[in-house]
């Protein structure tokens, strides 16, 4: 009996440590997907901590295969900021795995966020193995939910519908929709996914600049042509900037700050402020340019 215990113990330890390495990798990858695509920082931290704690082999006082209690479950923690993830896990042998990953913001993608969140639940409920989880993460990363044209149509719809929401008439709605089309075209040209790959601030500024200019141009054109309805400049511009407004950054900034995550809250508030400033400066310059052109 003693013999079997002695032989099984090292074997158990070795599979455990390879499992733990996988676990850290999975926790890091799930955290990466969630943070990249619009999760709050504290949610990412919490999810990663849960994943690290839910493996049966690395847990405090868990039963080894030979019935022995694995003593000294290792120290584990996850530290997440808006731009990076650090995760550490102490193996039963005393060795420690620590990984650091720099996260680039990939733009909100709530489908990926939802799937990654779900995967962590499944992992902790034990309904999915580590190997399956690795494959699942790969699938989540590559998943595409809407084709480009649907996103384009939605952008136009946002601008047009917000014009109605803000109390505009048919004219405002159409003008804002036209601006929505301009946003799509401009994004293809100057956006980070487009040709010039300008920084986010300049992108937002240039798009809102063009939009404000276009709106003034349209309004003068309509006035000259004698359109019977009225188009309000304020309503049109306000609703056209809605697709650019940093809604995700604002919400997450609030929730992170309230959670006591001041560093991430501050970074996100900064992001929201920079985008808002880009929009305001762009509109200002656009209107000035039009006025100068008239004189």
């Amino acid at each position: 009996m003693k013999q079997t215990e002695q032989t099984s113990k090292p074997e158990y330890k070795s599979t455990c440590s390879s499992d733990c390495k996988k676990l850290v990798e999975i926790a890091l990858n799930i955290g990466d997907v969630m943070l990249k695509h619009g999760a709050e920082t504290y949610r990412v931290e919490d999810t990663m901590r849960r994943i690290l704690s839910c493996s049966p082999c690395c847990q405090t006082g868990s039963q080894g295969p030979a019935g022995d209690t694995v003593s000294e479950a290792g120290y584990r923690d996850a530290y997440v900021t808006y731009t990076g993830i650090m995760v550490t896990l102490e193996l039963p042998g005393g060795e420690t795995i620590t990984k650091v990953k720099r996260i680039e913001n990939g733009g909100a993608n709530y489908n990926k966020l939802y799937l990654a969140n779900n995967l962590s639940r499944k992992l902790c409920a034990g309904t999915i193995s580590l190997e399956e989880a690795e494959g699942e993460i790969r699938r989540i990363r590559e998943s595409r939910i809407y084709p480009e044209w649907v996103v384009g149509v939605s952008t136009v719809l946002i601008a047009a519908m917000f014009a109605v929401l803000f109390g505009g008439g048919l004219g405002d709605c159409l003008a804002a929709g036209l601006n929505g089309v301009f946003i799509i075209v401009a994004r293809q040209l100057v956006g980070q996914k487009g040709r010039l790959q300008l920084p986010a601030f300049i992108e937002t500024m240039l798009i809102s600049l063009g939009m404000a200019y276009l709106t003034r141009l349209l309004l003068s054109g309509v006035e000259l042509a004698g359109w019977p309805g009225s188009i309000d400049q304020g309503t049109v511009i306000t609703s056209s900037i809605m697709p650019l407004v940093p809604g995700v950054a604002i919400t997450n900034a609030i929730r992170d700050t309230l959670q006591g995550d001041y560093m991430s809250g501050g970074s996100r508030a900064m992001e929201a402020f920079v985008t808002a400033a880009g929009i305001a400066v762009g509109i200002g310059i656009g209107l000035i340019l039009f006025r100068i052109m008239l004189e």
């Binding site: 709530y110 990926k112 809407y146 946002i158 697709p243 809604g247």
Partner: peptide, 9 residues
């Protein structure tokens, strides 16, 4: 429409 451009499920 906005939830679509945020790629909501």
């Amino acid at each position: 429409a906005f939830s679509v451009i945020l790629y909501t499920s």
